[in-house]
Design a protein around this nucleic acid. Structure first.
Lengths: 343, 343
DNA sequence: CTGAAAGCGCTTACAG
DNA sequence: CTGAAAGCGCTTACAG
């Protein structure tokens, strides 16, 4: 293993000072064209790469973004929610386009994550991604903000929360999909998904659902709701309960596609069929939702756009520009699981 | 935004030298228990974090691994192959367990990636992940090895290639799934997937397929094969060709699940049904494959284990321990798309 | 346009 | 057990 070349080695070979090498490599206009070309050629030949630790230390910035992916610690740890995996993909892409490196990290909500990356100068800013009990880390967000850490959060748009957030219109999504079910002729409903303040996204979807039902006079206090987290298992068990209580409604609204997968599975084992006996809808439009039988009606969040906006907003914040919350529209994806017009 | 505290600030407050602060923070046994506690308490109060750039520069290691994800540049850029996304998830997890940071980057095969990360001291080692034209970057791998860069590669096990590789037994997978089709009574076949040396994984799967057919006397030189890359579109178009030529075989073996998705889609639009008229099998066991109609028979690669082995092998290499190639067994996942025993 | 020099914030031999 | 000092490899005012 050869010793790694430094800028001094280049300087020696090129017969210039190390300062000039540094300038040439950074394409400084201060340096003679010819000198620059020579230095760059030698650097290429020696396979020289600027030491990032040294240059970052000197410039006090890292050209790196950290992505903190929160996981619901109760979810099946063998699988990441496909929706977030898809976000991860689009964020990676957006970072590459912006010539930033991306540091990815999984976090538990109770980890001491709040300052780690930017404080240690490994990253210039942080993207927070994940469902999960948002309230429980709210004070950490405040602390981040207090310290002047740059961060953007994917999630529920909420004026009371610190920092800037990019999210999808969960309320509208919940409203639209529910109203569609009403139009399809369904009259009794159940909601599967935690509707408490611990899960703001789910709560907003639920609120949209409730308001749509209310608008059509279909909402009652005893409309069943199950506090499921976003896993197949949660959905599966919720349906089992419904079946035991012999309280199967016309339509089941799931707070996520993953939950809906479990719901469909449970119904497949039951005497009831979808959508004839019961309609099922999900949320997220993960890839699988187009392939279930019947294909799942759901709400799409544009992950590609979301990744771009998250990254661009963060970069703006790092550049000390003004940034704003952004609420992306939710798009209804109608497939077969909600019944057809002539039902 | 407050100025970030340095070890000198801590030293000043604690009334000790900066060297002692550094030792205390690194839990050096050289420092008095009481002093250490005091220093650590102050550091916590000041929300102090060691500057990674400085410490990495000094120690010449980064506790960071870089993951280079190669993409087939011809594939649909709106979507990463779900199989690799799943690998990404398990690698992230494995890194977190090893207390390493993970730098993720997408690369085109023609980028000048080969040295970037480790040479610039941003990472201690590199994981290479992706299908793609392996031959085209073979000399880059040689170069990596020559420079003493630590790397492991996911992919085809091959003694002739530089560096250590972790992969799944593609040959055995291709063999097993084909033999299963033969057992199901299928007699004529087609293979969809590039079987050339540019795609070593696919080539190995194809070789297993050919050998299984040969073993049962079913292989002929004119058994159709299509040079598809791993996308739905490729599979879709290959089937269209088969239909135009009116050469639909008993069974279609796809080099990946993504290809199989396209095959199923094309057949759905045809008068033929799966598995009655034609069997279809895939490879990878991506999540969707369990939800298609009919559910897809495929070959599973254990991504979770793969991620762990990749990371652990790389860490060993970084620690100058001896490392070996590893060939993971392929597991047949039998579902409905291949027909049933009584066919 | 170029060079000599300072300094980013650490870690770690060296001396006590 | 502790401190003074060197040095990791850069970037960038400063002086010419």
């Amino acid at each position: 293993m050869k010793e790694k070349a430094t800028s001094f080695d280049i300087a020696h070979i090129a017969g210039v000072s190390q300062s000039t090498v540094s300038r040439a490599l950074n394409n400084s206009p201060l340096v003679n064209q010819e000198t620059r070309d020579r230095v760059q050629r030698i650097a290429r030949e020696l396979n020289y790469k600027v030491d990032k630790n040294a240059s970052n230390l000197r410039t006090q910035k890292s050209n790196t973004i950290a992505l903190l992916l929160f996981e619901d610690p109760t979810s099946d740890d063998s699988m990441i929610n496909p929706f977030f995996l898809s976000m991860l993909g689009s964020i990676t892409r957006a970072c590459a386009n912006a010539r930033y490196d991306l540091l990815v990290s999984f976090q538990n909500l109770d980890d001491d994550w709040h300052a780690e990356y930017e404080d240690s100068n490994k990253a210039d800013g942080i993207i927070l991604l994940g469902y999960g009990d948002y309230l429980s880390y709210r004070n950490k967000l405040s602390q981040l903000e207090e310290q002047g850490t740059h961060f953007v959060r994917w999630g529920a748009h909420d004026k009371e929360h610190p920092g800037v957030s990019i999210g999808c219109d969960n309320y509208q999504g919940g409203f639209d999909i529910t109203e569609h079910l009403v139009k399809m002729g369904h009259r009794s409903f159940a909601f599967i998904g935690d509707a408490g303040s611990h899960a703001p996204e789910f709560m907003a979807r639920h609120q949209g659902y409730v308001d749509a039902l209310s608008k059509h006079g279909l909402w009652t206090e005893d409309t069943p709701q199950f506090d499921a987290i976003s896993t197949e298992d949660s959905g599966f068990h919720a349906v089992q309960e419904l079946l035991e209580q012999e309280a199967l409604p016309d339509a089941i609204v799931c707070a996520s596609d993953l939950i809906a997968m479990g719901v469909l599975k449970a119904l497949r084992l039951s005497p009831y069929s979808v959508p004839e006996d019961v309609a099922v809808v999900g949320y997220d439009n993960i890839q699988v939702s187009g392939f279930t039988t019947p294909a799942l009606t759901t709400v799409q969040q544009n992950t590609r756009l979301a990744g771009e906006i998250l990254v661009n907003t963060l970069l703006k914040a790092i550049a000390k520009q003004e940034v704003h919350d952004y609420l992306m529209p939710a798009e209804l994806i109608i497939r077969q699981s909600c019944g057809s017009d002539n039902s």
